[in-house]
Deep mutational scan, measured.
Amino acid sequence: MLDDRARMEAAKKEKVEQILAEFQLQEEDLKKVMRRMQKEMDRGLRLETHEEASVKMLPTYVRSTPEGSEVGDFLSLDLGGTNFRVMLVKVGEGEEGQWSVKTKHQMYSIPEDAMTGTAEMLFDYISECISDFLDKHQMKHKKLPLGFTFSFPVRHEDIDKGILLNWTKGFKASGAEGNNVVGLLRDAIKRRGDFEMDVVAMVNDTVATMISCYYEDHQCEVGMIVGTGCNACYMEEMQNVELVEGDEGRMCVNTEWGAFGDSGELDEFLLEYDRLVDESSANPGQQLYEKLIGGKYMGELVRLVLLRLVDENLLFHGEASEQLRTRGAFETRFVSQVESDTGDRKQIYNILSTLGLRPSTTDCDIVRRACESVSTRAAHMCSAGLAGVINRMRESRSEDVMRITVGVDGSVYKLHPSFKERFHASVRRLTPSCEITFIESEEGSGRGAALVSAVACKKACMLGQ
C-alpha cells in the first residue's frame, strides 16, 4: 500500500517536472537572447534605426563620474514606483581627507489618484512632500541643488532636461508624456511658492545606482535594477552614441532593455503563462523582457503555473481556492519566502493557508518547484541581457580580458534567497573573457542622484555659470 502511494507521488512529481521543464533555458538559448539583445542595442544607438529599435539606448548626458572633490548639501528625489523618497545628502571631506556622503531620508507613498490623475496632481503632491521634508529638517530658507531620480523612459536633451516617452509600472498621470519632466517639477514648486529649489540633474535609477557604486569602486561602469521592473545602464564610447554629437570619451546610456521583445525577438521563448500575464497587464505587448524578470510579474506567473497544475490534477487534489483564482493573489514576496523555507515546509504551508488552501507535504514541495522554475528562468533571462552589455563593452574597448564592476539594486536581487547566485553564475558562463565584480548599492537611487548633481554643480562652477 505504502509502495503504491510512494509510486503515485513519484509519478505525480515526474509529471510536474515535465510541465515545469518549459521554463528551462539551455545555454544556447541564452546565447541567442544575448546576441539578439546586442543587435537591438546597436539599432538603438544608431541614428537611422533608433526610432524602430525596441531597446532605445537613451543617452543620459552623464559623462563624468564623481571624483571626490564636490562638497555641499544636496536634496535628492526618487520616483520610480508607488513609494517616493526625499533625501538630504551631505557631501563633504571625511576623516583623513576621505570623501564622505551622509544621508537623511523619508519615504512617502503615492496615492492612487496622483498616479493615475493628471501630471499637475502628481507633481503638486511631490512638491508637497518636499515642503514637508524641508519643514522637518528646518531647511526651507536654503535654496538647495536638487537631483531627481526618475525611473521611467526619458529622452534627455541635457542633464536637466528630459522628455517622458511613456509611463510604465502602473503610472498613468495624463499630460506628462511628451513633456519635460524637470519643467513639470519646477512648475509645481513655483505653484507652491513656499520654498526654492535648483533642479540641476535628472537621472534614471540605473544611472543613480551606477554612480553610487562608483563611489565604492571606481571600476563600476554598469548599473542595473532588478526590482519591480528590470533595466540597466553602462558607459558607452561616445563615438557609438549617434544621437549625441561628439566622439570623445564616454557617456552613460540608459538601455531601457525592459522593452526588448516588443518587436518579436522573444516570441519563441514566451510561454502561455507569459501571454496571460501580458494580456492582463496595463501595457499589453510592451516591456516583454521586463515581464519575464521583474517583481511586478513574478508572483503572478507562479500563480498561473499553480492553476495549470491544479487543472492537471497534480496539486491540491485538483481544487483551487477562490483566493488562488484571484489575479495578483500570489505576491512576489511569497516566491522569495517559499524558496527561503528551511525544509520543514512550515513557511510554505503558512503562505498557502493564507490563500485558503490546506496543502499536503507533496503540495508544498511542488509549489516550491514552481517558484524555483519561474525565478530561475528570470535570473537566466536577466543574465543574457547583462552578458550582452558586458561583452559589447569588452569588444568596443578591444580588451582581451576586461575587469568590470556592476552596481545592482532592486528588491528581487536583494531579497530573493537564490536569485543573485543563479544570476551571477549564468552571467559568468556567458562572459568567459571578463572578470566581473557585483556590488549592491546602498540607498543607491538617492545618493547617486545627489552625486550626479554634485558633478553638475562642479561643472557649472568651472564653466562660470
Score class of each variant (00 low, 15 high):
Met381Gln: 05
Glu322Ser: 13
Arg85Phe: 02
Leu309Lys: 04
Asn231Met: 00
Phe74Lys: 02
Gly117Gln: 06
Gly246Phe: 06
Val305Pro: 12
Gly448Phe: 05
Met8Trp: 11
Glu51Thr: 09
Asp205Phe: 07
Gly410Ile: 02
Gly410Tyr: 00
Arg36Ala: 12
Ser340Asp: 11
Cys252Pro: 10
Glu399Gly: 08
Arg36Ile: 09
Ser100Gln: 13
Val154Pro: 01
Val241Ile: 14
Gly162Glu: 02
Ala53Met: 00
Leu314Phe: 05
Gly44Glu: 00
Glu157Val: 06
Ile348Lys: 08
Lys90Pro: 02
Gly328Trp: 11
Asp278Thr: 13
Leu185Gln: 07
Glu9Pro: 14
Trp167Cys: 05
Ile163Gly: 03
Arg397Lys: 15
Asp365Thr: 09
Thr168Lys: 01
Arg422Trp: 12
Glu67Trp: 15
Gly249Ile: 05
Leu304Asn: 08
Asn83Ser: 07
Ala114Gly: 05
Glu237Arg: 06
Leu77Cys: 02
Pro59Met: 08
Glu17Gly: 08
Glu248Met: 15
His141Trp: 14
Phe123Met: 00
Ile404Ala: 07
Gly72Ile: 05
Arg308Gln: 07
Leu314Arg: 13
His218Val: 14
Glu157Trp: 05
Trp167Val: 03
Asn166Glu: 06
Ala329Ser: 15
Leu451Cys: 01
His416Met: 14
Asn350Leu: 13
Leu266Ala: 03
Gly72Val: 01
Ala188Leu: 11
Val71Gly: 15
Arg397Ser: 10
Arg392Cys: 08
Leu184Phe: 01
Glu70Cys: 09
Glu443His: 03
Gln323Ala: 05
Pro153Trp: 00
Ser433Gly: 10
Asp124Trp: 01
Glu237Ala: 07
Glu95Cys: 09
Val182Asn: 00
Ile293Val: 07
Lys420Glu: 13
Gly223Asn: 00
Ser375Phe: 08
Ala188Phe: 00
Asn283Ala: 12
Met235Arg: 08
Arg7Tyr: 08
Gly147Ile: 02
Ile348Phe: 05
His218Arg: 15
Cys233Arg: 15
Phe195Leu: 07
Glu331Met: 00
Gly81Glu: 00
Leu324Trp: 10
Ala454His: 12
Leu79Cys: 08
Val374Ile: 13
Phe260Cys: 09
Gln337Phe: 05
Tyr215Asn: 06
Leu146Gln: 00
Val181Cys: 03
Arg5Ser: 10
Thr149Ile: 02
Leu134His: 03
Lys90Cys: 13
Asn391Lys: 08
Cys457Leu: 08
Lys458Leu: 07
Glu272His: 04
Phe74Asn: 03
Thr116Gln: 05
Leu386Asp: 00
Arg155Phe: 05
Leu144Trp: 05
Gly183His: 07
Gly227Asp: 00
Lys32Phe: 11
Asp158Cys: 06
Glu40Ile: 10
Ile130Tyr: 00
Arg155Leu: 00
Asp365Ala: 13
Val408Ile: 10
Asp274Cys: 02
Ser360Trp: 07
Leu75Lys: 02
Asp363Asn: 09
Asp409Val: 01
Ser373Cys: 11
Leu144Ile: 05
Phe330Cys: 13
Ala6Trp: 12
Glu312Lys: 14
Ser396Thr: 11
Phe123Pro: 00
Glu93Phe: 07
Arg369Asp: 09
Arg303Asp: 04
Thr65Leu: 15
Gly249Leu: 06
Arg429Ala: 13
Leu165Met: 08
Leu315Tyr: 02
Gly193Pro: 06
Val374His: 05
Asp341Gln: 12
Ser383Asn: 11
Phe423Val: 14
Ser263Trp: 08
Gly258Phe: 14
His105Asp: 06
Asp311Leu: 14
Ala379Ile: 07
Ala450Ser: 01
Asp365Tyr: 06
Cys220Leu: 04
Arg429Gln: 10
Glu93Ser: 08
Leu352Gly: 09
Lys39Tyr: 05
Cys252Trp: 02
Glu319Ile: 12
Glu372Val: 13
Asn240Phe: 05
Met115Leu: 10
Leu79Glu: 02
Ile348Trp: 07
Met251Arg: 12
Ile19Glu: 11
Val154Ala: 03
Ser69Leu: 08
Val452Tyr: 15
Leu451Phe: 15
Arg377Lys: 08
Ser174Trp: 01
Ala176Val: 09
Gly229Leu: 03
Gln219Pro: 14
Val277Lys: 09
Leu288Tyr: 14
Tyr108Lys: 00
Ile159Thr: 05
Glu242Val: 07
Trp167Met: 03
